[in-house]
Design a protein around this nucleic acid. Structure first.
Length: 846
RNA sequence: GCUCACGUAGCCCAACCGGCAGAGGCAGGGCACUUAAAAUGCCCCCAGUGUGGGUUCGAAUCCCACCGUGAGCACCA
């Protein structure tokens, strides 16, 4: 009977489900391990091959940790609120809840086919009342802490979607990241979360996390903490002053002009009449220009002199004031002092408008570069700075700040690029805010015991005719009495953004069925923090930063016991695929492609082949269902892990899955002999005997390598070690039962269905899921003799087979006797001997 | 434009702290089994590590520059 995943796999999936094999237990007698996937947004397109990559990795770790004696929490759920379902609802005229259910059912079915060891009893759906009740509850805690507030803010308004977007959702080119629709700036009253209050901790606490450095760097850059100073500039001849922020107070003597953002509030007041027309025109133009335009020609500096002069507080020098759109209204104070000699942008601007350039910092050693040619950006020694001349940059910064403070013209200040989080959306398919508004517009939080504030059922999801969000259509729902006074109030019609639900789902998994609290503190203390969190880099900033922010708020409220939610983070690489297109850019499906003379054709047209992101339009999407149908889930899992290192981007090659499928077949045949009558007869080579020395060594070496590789998430090399084992055992006619049993244990996390089947057929009644992981004896990994390459001047000339403890002198003596070595030593002087015991010997001759 | 990562056989990828370039797989070739084919088994072929410099007794590995690919960022004072 041949290996047949189509019968084995559903059987074991049913077994696991019926027996609740993977139920996570708060077992205080055992160490815990919490291994989490970034839960998916259940899109209508279904699972693609990228999802199972991370899921398989975490599943291998989860299964391995169970066998290693840990109590494992390995859950799955759905990030189910969100825009795509709402847009599909409008398109198909079906309620978003129904679309979401359809999609989650499909995702669940596809994920279950892969045999992941999730505790399905803990499945969560962020769009269910049982879940978003607690999202609202957390919002109330944020509100209590003064971290949620309303403000009239410049927002990213997306006319096509009829909603605002967070800065993080807008691409650099001024479009919505998800859909590419254009986005414009508009002032609106919105709910904000004061994430900036946590900026320092969000930066500082990254230090102790086991996260990829690039992700930490992205978060640090996003928060953008910079240390500098505020400096006040009086406007000459006017009763006005403005403040600039600078990271280089030491260059104050080099400030030759100031620049205000065109939107700066002082502009109208201090512009002189003769410049007014020009200034208004410029400010107008830059306000109307889209983000995209402004960025397109960012290199070309534009601006206008406004006729006013500012007084430099350090030396009373009068310097001209300009407006220019390279100074951003939303960052710092919206005003800068320009030091062209030591800032590239100021230098470009000064050059364009012929403004003076004065160098005030020189390198500590060597000569100063020509300040007219290039800005000198690095630290050095002050010059042209009066009493400060000769001071090192760091010292000079401090001294100038102290002196400015004395005269009330400045102070040290820390500035962040991070802005508060815009937390409301004019959408239907999201969490309603647990608030009402009194007639005078005051927001009143509702008490905990009325939660959840359920989303009213609507049939129309567009904004109202007067531009209010869809929830304004729910007239019955909208009107409520004030929770205390009973006066008529209206509910908030905005909903929360999609990130809200994903900010805390890892906590809900700790206690997913609790209907009294969001989670119990006992469970939270047992499971948290998440020990391993795997997902794509696309969430490096948004989700991970928001979740960390909420977690810290909850920590301060003593609702969670850890400072950080995710101890170890790992990003899987993207799975891409070959795509084929002709010279006109038209794509062809792989099945239409023929290969001739090393070239590619479709219908006689020559094509180019390249590796690209999978997408429908490129006709290169691989559907996991088809792969499982053809090869089985175990082969699919194994292939995705075998393709290459988890963190690397790699191309999908359907031919590659043939290889792992053959491997699984070969494993099967190690255990079962082919018989005429199709019986399940154990292969006669499987015997209850002690392993010989070679087999024992192989067993220990394989266990050691696979264990270490799993610990380090190097699944590709783990699999190749198992292949080696199988290739060797395949040639043996005696396969000791104990060794083969250990091999099944190693294989089981990777190919769990086959693992269970083999284990079962070898006569075990219980699931393999909790069998103890094989151990190894390091002393058996070492060979008694080693092959030492002998190099002469770095080139290998001979190899010596020696005992691994042989002394250096003896090895050298042996080497010198070797004819091949002698040839290269002849009549040369031996100058140096480098011996690395057991590794190599290098003889250096003149 | 800036930052980071990665370039090893026809292809996907190994190679520990700098020490024999090859573990594994795909594709290709040969042989065996077979009436034949598929499947299977055994064997074989194939690169000197993107390019150019440098450090070192010794470089795929460290340093510099360039080229290519991918990801992220967007005038953050």
């Amino acid at each position: 009977m041949p290996y047949d995943p189509a019968t084995i796999e559903p059987r074991w999936q049913t077994f696991w489900e019926d027996n609740k094999t993977f139920r996570a237990v708060e077992d205080r007698t055992r160490p815990k391990y919490y291994v989490l996937d970034m839960f998916p947004y259940p899109s209508g397109a279904g699972l693609h091959v990228g999802h199972p990559e991370g899921y398989t990795a975490t599943d291998i770790v989860a299964r391995y940790k169970r066998m290693a004696g840990f109590s494992v929490l390995h859950p799955m759920g759905w990030d189910a609120f969100g825009l795509p379902a709402e847009r599909a609802a409008v398109r198909e005229e079906i309620h978003p809840a129904e679309i979401t259910k359809r999609n989650t059912d499909n995702f669940r079915r596809q994920i279950k086919r892969l045999g992941f060891s999730y505790d399905w009893d803990r499945e969560v759906d962020t769009s269910s009342e049982a879940y978003y009740r607690w999202t609202q509850w957390i919002f109330l805690r944020l509100h209590e802490q003064g971290l949620a507030y309303q403000a009239e803010v410049p927002v990213n308004w997306c006319p096509a979607l009829g909603t605002v977007l967070a800065n993080e959702e807008v691409s650099p080119d001024g479009t919505y990241k998800e859909t590419g629709d254009p986005v414009e700036k508009r002032m609106m009253r919105q709910w904000m979360l004061r994430i900036t209050a946590y900026a320092d901790r969000l930066t500082d606490d990254l230090q102790d996390l086991d996260w990829p450095e690039p992700v930490k760097k992205m978060q640090r850059d996003w928060i953008g903490r910079s240390h500098g100073a505020e400096v006040q500039f009086r406007v000459d001849g006017a009763d006005a002053e403005f403040t600039v922020f600078t990271t280089r107070p030491d260059t104050l003597f080099g400030a030759t002009y100031c620049v205000l953002a065109p939107e700066h509030e002082l502009v109208a007041q201090i512009t002189t009449d003769e410049h007014r027309a020009e200034v208004v025109a410029y400010a107008d133009r830059s306000a109307r220009r889209s983000e995209r335009d402004r960025r397109a020609d960012a290199k070309e500096k534009t601006g206008v002199f406004i006729g006013a002069f500012a007084v430099n507080p350090i030396n009373d020098e009068k310097i001209p004031v300009w407006i220019a759109d390279y100074v951003l209204a939303g960052y710092g104070t919206g005003a800068i002092m320009a030091v062209p000699a030591h800032d590239e942008r100021d230098h470009a601007f000064a050059t364009a408008f012929d403004l003076p350039i004065r160098d005030v910092v020189r390198p500590a050693h060597g000569s100063a570069p020509d300040a007219r040619q290039t800005a000198f950006l690095t630290d050095g020694v002050a010059c042209n700075s009066g009493a400060y001349d000769g001071l090192e940059t760091a010292v000079c910064k401090e001294r100038i700040v102290i002196d400015l403070e004395k005269v009330g013209a400045g102070r040290a200040r820390v500035q962040y690029a991070l802005r508060d989080w815009l937390f409301s959306r004019q959408r239907y398919w999201g969490e309603p805010f647990p608030l009402v508004k009194t007639p005078d517009g005051t927001a009143v939080p509702l008490p905990d015991d009325v939660l959840p504030i359920t989303l009213p059922h609507l049939t129309e999801f567009k904004p109202t005719a007067d531009g209010r969000p869809p929830l304004a259509r729910a007239s019955d729902w909208l009107q409520v009495p004030h929770p205390e006074t009973g006066e008529p109030c209206e509910r908030e019609t905005n909903t929360m953004p999609q990130w809200a639900g994903s900010c805390w789902y890892y906590l809900r998994f700790c206690d997913a069925r609790n209907d009294q609290e969001a989670w119990s503190s006992e469970n939270e203390k047992y499971w948290m923090p998440v020990d391993l969190y795997i997902g794509g880099t696309e969430h490096a900033v948004l989700h991970l930063l928001y979740a960390r922010f909420w977690h810290k708020v909850l920590f301060d409220l003593e609702l969670v016991s850890t400072k950080e939610p995710f101890q170890k983070l790992f990003n899987q690489g993207m799975i891409r695929a070959y795509s084929y297109k002709d010279s006109s850019g038209r794509y062809y499906h792989e099945s239409d492609v023929e290969r001739r003379d090393g070239k590619l054709f479709a219908n006689g047209i020559e094509l180019s082949g390249q590796v690209e992101k999978m997408s429908k339009s490129k006709l290169n999407v691989v559907n996991p269902d088809h792969i499982i149908d053809a090869y089985g889930a175990d082969a699919m899992r194994l292939y995705e892990m075998f393709m290459g290192p988890l963190e690397m981007a790699k191309p999908w090659q359907t031919s590659g899955i043939e290889g792992v499928s053959r491997f699984l077949n070969r494993v099967w045949r190690l255990f079962f002999a082919e018989s005429e009558d199709g019986d399940d007869s154990i292969h006669p080579s499987i015997q209850d005997v002690n392993a010989d020395d070679d087999t024992t060594k192989l067993r220990h070496a394989t266990v050691a390598a696979v264990t270490e590789d799993i610990e380090n998430l190097r699944f590709n090399t783990a699999i190749s070690r198992m292949m080696e084992f199988v290739n060797v055992m395949n040639q043996r006619d005696v396969r000791p039962r104990s060794v083969m049993g250990d091999f099944i244990k190693l294989l089981a996390p990777f190919a769990p269905h086959l693992g269970e089947e083999l284990w079962h057929r070898l006569g075990h009644a219980d699931t393999i899921a909790f069998e103890s992981w094989p151990t190894f004896d390091p002393s058996l990994l070492q060979e008694d003799t080693v092959t030492v390459p002998v190099q002469v001047n770095g080139k290998v000339r001979a190899r010596l087979e020696v005992s691994k403890d042989l002394e250096e002198d003896a090895v050298v003596a042996l080497a010198r006797e070797d004819p091949a070595v002698q040839k290269h030593l002849a009549d040369k002087e031996l100058r140096k001997i480098i011996y690395r015991p057991g590794r190599m010997l290098n003889l250096v001759v003149s």
